[in-house]
Structure formats: structure tokens, C-alpha cells
Design a binder for these strands. Structure first.
Lengths: 196, 196, 196, 196
DNA sequence: AATGAATGAGCCTTCATTCAT
DNA sequence: AATGAATGAAGGCTCATTCAT
């Protein structure tokens, strides 16, 4: 009697294992043996469900993006004003789950890999575009188009920048939270450029 | 007397080849065969001059950092005011040589690897620290300590953030230059917090 | 259910192949390719089952020692008197399986390597100690302690000496068997020093 | 102005370096780099004077044998009786220089290697033969031919056996010197088989 | 559904050897 | 006489992937 419906269970377990492995290693060059081991299955099974390592990694990245997207959409629904929407985007980017050292490492790893793998690149682009359009549409309601585009770009860069800097700062207490600095920037921008 | 003085020539050629290989591949997992091939020598020679792959990569990163540091120091000497010093740091960060796709890719790759390799981490830390202290001392002359620290942190994050975002933007023209956005941020900060 | 139970089969085949390779080459610096080839498998499989070359070699030596120990214990059980026990130790040392050119060469190779490898040294020590204590306890029942120790030492040296000399004598017929000479020594000793 | 007469000096220095390297390493698989380094010259020079590694090793072994032979011949001239000649052979075999751990290791290494290299084999054979004929001719004057051959064989085996056992015994004090045990054997033999 | 078995390809590294100077 | 420069060949080891069960 074959077990039924194992596919989604195994796929999910393997993706979680991949995140764990990548986070622990700090880069994408993890072995299938490591991933399968963390999932408690054989490497053969991982290949059975994903075909190849690349596809497992792509699925893993897709999973991360989907998680982030889900959280973002949910929080955005509770945001009433454009200003709140901006804060929501920033807050979600640095929400606990997304800012643990492991996840930071995983994100960086995917960024790097995305330069080469067209699949990962496409996935990452979707995220980048969504982030940017969320910020842009919110800013666009608060200031002229030109300024809005610039502000959206800047906030997106700040988010990524704090991410990457976090990766190097181990244990050093950071007096200013990334969120506070970004919020401060947004406020300054609004104070100067806001539509009357 | 044998042929002499090849050591510095070969070392330099191999480092250039390593940058080229890493840039092309988009990550640090390049092969010695690839690097040596680009330098036009055998892998054995690469080992002869660097001992091991890790050392070649470390030397490569050190070279990049040294180049950046050299250019920074030179340009800073021509900067008369604190405000100019800030602009210089920003400008050097995005100066042509430092912002080519290849070098961006190489920097990202080193960032990721630095999370694991103590050697690379140490090298990168020096750079991070120098960057930050340059920005901080300049800002500190223009605004209260607290604000200066925050501003320095933000500018550093913006620089890194634009770097990393650049890695995904292939060919897409960027209407706003990173430099312009950062300069705008600095101006806004100064307008608000500047010492009287 | 996959194909099962190959592990012991492969391990044994690889150990036999290692003995064969070492014997043929006359020293421990055999290649994994050679060993794996003789076993009819890929080098990757050899690594799969033994982890590294050193471990395969250690396992091989352990196997030789275990074989010798097994035969020795079995034969000793049939020996009723101390004098017979001595003869048994001598005989087993030169029993056919243990004295083929290949095995002699393998033993010598291990002797040499044991000077450097702590693992092999430890294994060899066990054998040396067992051999000596067997001889010593038998001699101790036949003569005073002092003489017994000396005799045991001498017989052990004779065994090793004939071993090593055999390695150089290729094809030359040896008029006196090693066993006969050693037995003669034992008899002479007993005639002189035996307890009344 | 080329230096004149460097050949013998360099050859000797390289041979000494080879002995040193082999002794330190405990086996013949030393690198030319190691040997040349100990001699304070480049590997290229070692090749210049010896052509190939094998030839340097052969020359090294030949040097050891020549040394041994020289000492043996000198000491034998002072030996008046056959009995003394036997003692001399034994004594020389274990004379300080010949029984240091390093030299023991070197000898063993050559023994092993001799199984493969025809050149080394030939050299070693000469030594073996000379040793045996020295012992045999001395014994032949003291006992019947049959017994003499057997005794010579036994003493040669004892010498080699103590050699090889010494290689494993590190630091353990040995209550009975090898020489004493062998002398005791010779005396016992003579007591039993001596010509009237 | 799941896995032990097995391998080909590739990588880093070492080393004896050659050559031009 | 001497050596820095350079390499081809080979070895140990890893790993993604396939297959039979």
C-alpha cells in the first residue's frame, strides 16, 4: 500500500530543509546530501520530487518570496493611508522572520545566484517589481511623480542596504534600528516634497 | 641567471583573471582552471604563486579593497569641506571602475563569502569601518552627534543598497542616478539638522 | 526496496583488492584507482564505503591482523604444552597464507607506514604485544624469567628477520626453512636453560 | 668565472640531505623540494647533478651501503679469530650510527623500495651477500658446513629482525640488548656444534 | 513511496621534470 | 654553476544524478 498524498508533505519538508541548510551554510552551495539529511530522507527522494537541485533551489526561493508576499498583502489590507502603506512595506521587510541572520544569509545567497540563473532572476524580479510598485504607488499619492519615483527608489535601496550590512555586523549592537532611519527619511521627504 | 621578476607580473595577472572569472560567473565558486586559463597559465603556476585557491581569492579581495582605498584617499585630499568629503565618499563608491557589472558581481560574491570565511570577513570589516568612519567624521562636523551617526548609517546603507539592486537591473536605464538620490538625502538631512 | 546488503560485500572486496594492490606494488603508495579497479568498482564507491584512503588502508591492516589473530587463537587451542605453544606461534607466523610474497610485501609496507601513522602504529602494537606475550608466557613455564624474556625476544626477532629477508630473496631456494632454524634455536635454549 | 669542482660537493650535500629527509619522514616518499631545501639548493640543481629522483635515491642507498661496508672492513681487519669476526659483524650492524631511529627508518624504507626498483634491489643484494658470506666463512671455520650455513642464516635474520622491531619500539627501554641476545645465540651454537 | 547502490565528471592540489637565462 | 619559471600528469576526494528494487 503506497502512502498517498506524500508529495506535498515531502516537497514542503525538503524546501524547509533547504532553507535551513542554506541559512546555516550562508550560501547556496549546499549539498543535496545536506538538504535531504535535514529533511530526513534520501537524496534519491529529493531528486524524485524535484528532478534536479536547481529546481529545488528555485522552489525554495519561490517559497520565500511567496511567504513574504503573503505577509505583505495581509498587512497592507490593514493599512488605510498611503503613509501607512509605506510603513507597512518597510516593517514587513524587517519583520522578525525576515531579518534573522539565517534568512538574511539566504536572501543574499539568492541575490548572488540570481545573476546567473535565469529562473531565479525572474523570480527575484517579480519581488523587486512588487516592492517597488507598492512603494511607488503610495509615494505617488503624496508627492509629485518625479519625487515619488526617487523616494521609492531610495527606500528600496535603504531596505536592501540595511539587509546586506546586517550580514556583516555580528553581535555589534546597532543603536539605530533600520526601520527608524528609513521612517525618518520618509518623513523628511514628505516634509519637503509633499503635495499641498 | 634565470628569468626573473615574473612573480609580481603573474600575481597581478592572476588576480585580474580572478576578478574577471568571478565577475563573469557571478559568484566565488570559480575554478582554478578557469582563472588560470584567463591568465594564460597553468593551474600549477597559480598554486605556485598563491599556494591555494583561498589565498588567491583573499588576495583578489584585498586588491579590490586596496584599489578602492587608494582612490578614496586620493580624492579625499582634494576635498576641502566636510560636505565635500561626504560627496567624495559617495562618488568614489560609484566611480566607473567600481560600478561595472563585473565588479558589482564580484563585490556581492565577496559579501556573501565573507559571512563564512574569517579571512575575507576581516578584510571586509576594514573597508566597512573605514567607510563608516569617513562618513561619520564628516557628518559630525555638520550636525549633532546623534544625527550624524544616523545619517552616516543611512548613507552607507544607501550605497550598499544601490549596489545590490544594480546587480539585478541588467540594461534597464535608471532614470535617477544613485549618486543623485544619495546627495539629495544628504542635503535634506543637512537642511533639517545642520548646526547653526 | 533497493538492492541491499552490498556494504559488507564491497568492503571485503575492496580490502582484498587493497591487499592485492599493495602486494603487487610492494608498498602502501597505491592509488585508489588501482584498488577500486581491482575490486571492479569506481573510486567513488571506495570512498563511499571507507570515507578516505587512510581508512581503507587501516581497515586492510586490521583485516590482516584479525586473520592472523584468528588463526593463532584457533591453533593455540590445540596446543597442549608450552613447548607446543611456541611451535604454534612460529608455525602460524610462517603458515602459507601469511608467507606468500604478496602478504610479506604488504606486511613490510605496513611496518614502514606504522612509523608515521598513529592509527597503523596502534594496530601493529597490538599484534606485536600479543605475539610477544604468547611467546613469553610459554617460555616462562620452561625456564627462569630472565631467560624466558630473552628467548621470547629472540624468537620474535627471528620471525621478523626471516620475514624481511624473504622480501629480497626472489625465487632463490632456501635450503633451511625458517621454521627449522627457529625450532632449532628454541631447542638449544631449552637444553641449556630449562627448569629442572 | 664558474666555480670549479662543485660536483662532488653538491652531490655529497644532496645525498646527506636525502638521508636526512628520508630519516625524518620515515619513508622514501620524500619530495625533491624537501631534499633540495635541506641541501640549500634548488630542485633544478638536484636534477642537474642526478638526472632524476630515482638516481639520487639510488646514490643515497649506495652511500649508506658503502659507509657500512667501509666500517665493516676496517673493524674486520682488527679481528683475529673467526669468533671475533662474527662479533664484529654483529657489532657493526648495531653500531651507534647504524642504529639511530633515523637510520633504521631509512633502511626499512630501502628494503621496501628494493622490492620494486631493480637498481636498489641489486645494491641491497650486494650488502646481503657480503654480510652472509662474512658470517658464513667465520662460522665455517668453527663448525660443520651445514651447521655453519644455518647459523649464518639465523644471525642474519636476528640482525634484521631486531632492526625492524626497533622501528616500532619507541622509547620503551629494552632490557636485553640485541647484541647480547645474538652473542648468546652464537655461543650456544658453538657450544653444541663446534668442531672438536 | 522510498532508498541503497553506484558512477562520471570535475575540482583542488602536488610533484617531478624541463627550460631559458 | 645555478635557479626561477613553468607545466603535464596524476591523485584524492566530492557531488549531483541514475537505477534497480
Amino acid at each position: 500500500m503506497p502512502k498517498l498524498g506524500m508529495q506535498p508533505i515531502r516537497r514542503r519538508a525538503l524546501i524547509d530543509a533547504a532553507i535551513s541548510a542554506i541559512g546555516a551554510r550562508g550560501s547556496l552551495d549546499v549539498t543535496m546530501t545536506d538538504i535531504a539529511g535535514r529533511a530526513g530522507v534520501s537524496t534519491a527522494l529529493a531528486h524524485h520530487y524535484f528532478g534536479a537541485k536547481d529546481e529545488l533551489l528555485a522552489a525554495t526561493m519561490w517559497h520565500l518570496l511567496a511567504d513574504l508576499g503573503l505577509e505583505l498583502r495581509r498587512k497592507l489590507q490593514a493599512a488605510d493611508s498611503p503613509r501607512e502603506r509605506i510603513s507597512t512595506v518597510v516593517a514587513v521587510s524587517f519583520s522578525v522572520g525576515q531579518f534573522s541572520p539565517e534568512v538574511v544569509a539566504t536572501w543574499l545567497a539568492f541575490y548572488v545566484e540570481a545573476q546567473r540563473s535565469p529562473t531565479l532572476r525572474r523570480l527575484l524580479r517579480i519581488y523587486v517589481h512588487r516592492m517597488r510598485s507598492n512603494l511607488l504607488s503610495a509615494f505617488a499619492r503624496l508627492m509629485p511623480r518625479q519625487d515619488a519615483e526617487q523616494a521609492a527608489e531610495a527606500v528600496a535601496a535603504l531596505i536592501d542596504g540595511f539587509y546586506i550590512r546586517r550580514a556583516l555586523r555580528d553581535g555589534l549592537p546597532n543603536p539605530f534600528s533600520a526601520v527608524a532611519i528609513i521612517e525618518d527619511y520618509v518623513d523628511a521627504k514628505l516634509a519637503t516634497k509633499a503635495l499641498s
